[in-house]
């Protein structure tokens, strides 16, 4: 029982990341009809926003403290981050400590700008082209973005810690009446899950309860008619692209403490997230979210020792096996709509 619960929890944070990226992919596909292979790169750029902010906040100057000496006998140099000098040591330290959550604020405008630039600069020209061309050009873009990040940040993963307040783990088992330390779960992952749920809820209610969202949904159903009603649907779709980029971006920001960002993390996630989108059903937002969590949890269940001894190596391939089975039995995926990407 407790192992099952533990695996369920472990699956949640990965599932959240899958769900967030898949949500963005589906938003783009549903609105603009574009298969975006560069979406993983957007996730990665988000993660590097967190890295950048934490580096910026850690910029420091050196002062020489004449009273202390280091082990060589020279006067000791003390590094003081600028923020600590400007805002006082307490507040400055808190700023540095909370750099990852702060990076969300920092990243949203950046990601929206990146999204706009991508849509207006490149993808706009590919609406009338076949899906294969869209896949290919965004695949090229993903390579380019990846190489640019590699140039600026190097090839090694950069660890970006969560705030100290969330360093520990939460003893879930004790709360539910199991033995203490049976089910422990890092706070940050819990927060990630909560955050993902919040973002997903926000996107859905934005689409469901605002006029803007209504128009966008109408445009997804029938773009031409909405256009004929005198609504500039293209501009709204561009905004949705920016929104999708922001969703993937903040997903990346918050994931930075869980997985140290490196330049190829985007590609690693992208392949899985495409599988997620297809399993959920191309063009279905709830399907993408459901499939994201489902596959995340299945992945963590299959890495249990009991399962692994039964079916060796299953943890490595479970996602693909599920994808193949679902695509063959339910050709449109879990919640796919009729007429999307069909013959």
């Amino acid at each position: 029982m407790e192992t099952i619960l533990l695996q369920l929890l472990n699956g949640l944070d990965k599932g959240s990341a899958y769900a967030l990226i898949a949500l963005g992919l589906t938003l783009i596909f549903g609105t603009l009809g574009v298969v975006n292979f560069a979406h993983g790169a957007i996730f990665m750029i988000g993660a590097f926003c967190a890295v950048t902010l934490s580096k910026l906040l850690n910029l420091s100057f050196e002062t020489i403290d004449p009273e202390k000496v280091d082990f060589l006998g020279n006067p000791a140099k003390i590094k003081t981050p600028y923020v600590e000098a400007w805002f006082g040591p307490d507040f400055g330290h808190a700023l540095i400590d909370w750099s990852v959550p702060l990076a969300i604020l920092f990243s949203i405008p950046i990601m929206i700008a990146v999204g706009f630039a991508m849509e207006r600069g490149l993808i706009k020209h590919f609406y009338k082209r076949p899906h294969a061309d869209q896949i290919l050009v965004t695949f090229g873009l993903a390579i380019v973005l990846q190489e640019v990040i590699k140039y600026f940040y190097g090839a090694n993963p950069i660890s970006t810690p969560a705030p100290d307040a969330f360093k520990g783990s939460f003893d879930f088992g004790a709360m539910l009446g199991f033995d203490p330390n049976m089910i422990i779960y890092p706070y940050w992952r819990l927060i990630y899950f909560g955050f993902a749920a919040l973002v997903i809820g926000a996107v859905f209610s934005f689409l469901q309860f605002t006029t803007f969202g209504m128009v966008v949904r109408a445009g997804m159903a029938d773009r031409e008619t909405v256009g004929l009603l005198g609504i500039n649907i293209d501009r709204r779709f561009t905004i949705m692209f920016g929104l999708a980029a922001a969703v993937a971006g903040v997903a990346g920001v918050m994931y930075a403490p869980i997985l140290s960002p490196n330049y190829h993390m985007g590609m690693d996630f992208l392949v899985l997230c495409f599988v997620v989108v297809v399993v959920g059903g191309m063009g279905s937002l709830p399907g993408a979210v459901a499939a994201g969590f489902l596959l995340g949890i299945l992945e963590s269940f299959s890495s249990m020792n009991a399962v692994k001894s039964l079916l060796p190596g299953i943890d490595q391939i479970i996602i693909y096996v599920v994808a193949i089975v679902i695509l063959l039995t339910r050709p449109r995926g879990l919640m796919g709509k009729k007429g999307v990407m069909e013959e």
């Binding site: 060796p312 190596g313 693909y320 695509l327 063959l328 013959e343």
Partner: peptide, 30 residues
């Protein structure tokens, strides 16, 4: 035989899934 039951992007994803599976299995079970 399996992948060609679908076309378009589904076919691309299926072949990708099979290739990734072979890659992962070559590293682990096989």
């Amino acid at each position: 035989y399996v992948s060609l039951r679908r076309s378009g992007i589904y076919f691309s994803i299926l072949t990708l899934a099979f290739a990734q599976m072979s890659y992962k299995m070559a590293y682990s079970v096989l």
